[in-house]
């Protein structure tokens, strides 16, 4: 009862915060009174609905989302392998460090421009999303691996747990919170970097291309509308993926 009261209060506060932000946006657009500089929330919403009805919308969204999520999943796969290897053989962590530190510190724009020399605009967003998500996923997974309770590992040794049981009962509970947090942050980063790559690489029929032309023609309604779509896609896919992970985890926990 108490929890649900807190939940309701939280929902009300969150809604109020969103309404306040929209109100401030509306006030700013009225005050500036120039569509070319700042479109109003209503204009943006109307434009989003127009875009949703356009024939090319689904293809554009699918292409961009496909490239970015592909980059993210590639990074997740690599991060799992690299973190497991570095956790098992700590010397590898030292060898991986310079590469990951470079990726973490070099500005994403530099990577995009350098990568454009070798990659087409289509492949660029996959690669850049991969590159930006990899360090955060790797670091978090490695942290989770190191966080495993050594006493539980002793326990697994004593009872001669198989690889699967050892993973599921000992490693996985330690890694799980780190994995969920890394996926949440990594997915957001992949979207930001992936869209930036598209804006610079301008692959045909992509969200990045739409943003590029909106900027080129000072079409702030389109610019805001596509940005809103990106935010919705990014948050939606992240939530969907986290839900999927939780379902997979629950299924795995029943496997023993």
């Amino acid at each position: 009862m108490r929890t649900s009261a807190i939940d309701v209060k939280k929902i009300i506060l969150n809604t109020l915060a969103v309404l306040l932000a929209i109100f401030m946006w509306q006030a700013a657009s009225l005050w500036i009174h120039a569509d070319v500089l700042i479109a109003s929330p209503l204009q943006v919403l109307r434009r989003v609905f127009e875009l949703l009805q356009s024939e090319t919308f689904a293809a554009i969204v699918l292409r961009s989302a496909g490239h970015i999520t592909a980059g993210f999943f590639l990074a997740l796969g690599c991060a799992v392998v690299l973190a497991a290897a570095a956790g098992r053989f700590p010397v590898l962590e030292i060898f991986f460090r310079p590469f990951l530190l470079t990726v973490k510190t070099v500005p994403v724009a530099s990577f995009i421009v350098i990568s454009l020399i070798w990659l087409s605009g289509n492949k660029l967003s996959v690669f850049i999303s991969f590159l930006m998500a990899l360090p955060i996923l790797y670091n978090n997974l490695l942290q989770g691996y190191k966080n495993t309770d050594p006493k539980m590992l002793q326990c697994a040794d004593l009872f001669h747990f198989s690889f699967f049981k050892r993973f599921l009962l000992v490693r996985f509970p330690a890694v799980k919170p780190f994995l969920l947090s890394a996926c949440s942050t990594g997915m957001g980063l992949a979207w930001k970097a992936g869209i930036a790559a598209e804006v610079i690489g301008i692959p045909k029929d992509s969200i990045g291309e739409m943003l590029y032309y909106a900027k080129l023609y000072f079409d702030s309604k389109d610019l805001f509308a596509w940005t809103l779509i990106i935010v919705i896609l990014s948050v939606g896919i992240e939530k969907l993926f986290l839900l999927l992970l939780k379902v997979i985890f629950a299924g795995l926990e029943k496997k023993i």
Partner: peptide, 24 residues
């Protein structure tokens, strides 16, 4: 072949009692 009850329980907290026991 050894077995033990440790001073701390050393159980996998997110799993059921049965799963913990059946793991061995």
């Amino acid at each position: 072949r050894k077995s033990a009850v440790f001073q701390e329980d050393r159980l996998s907290e997110n799993f059921s009692a049965l799963t913990n026991v059946q793991a061995v």
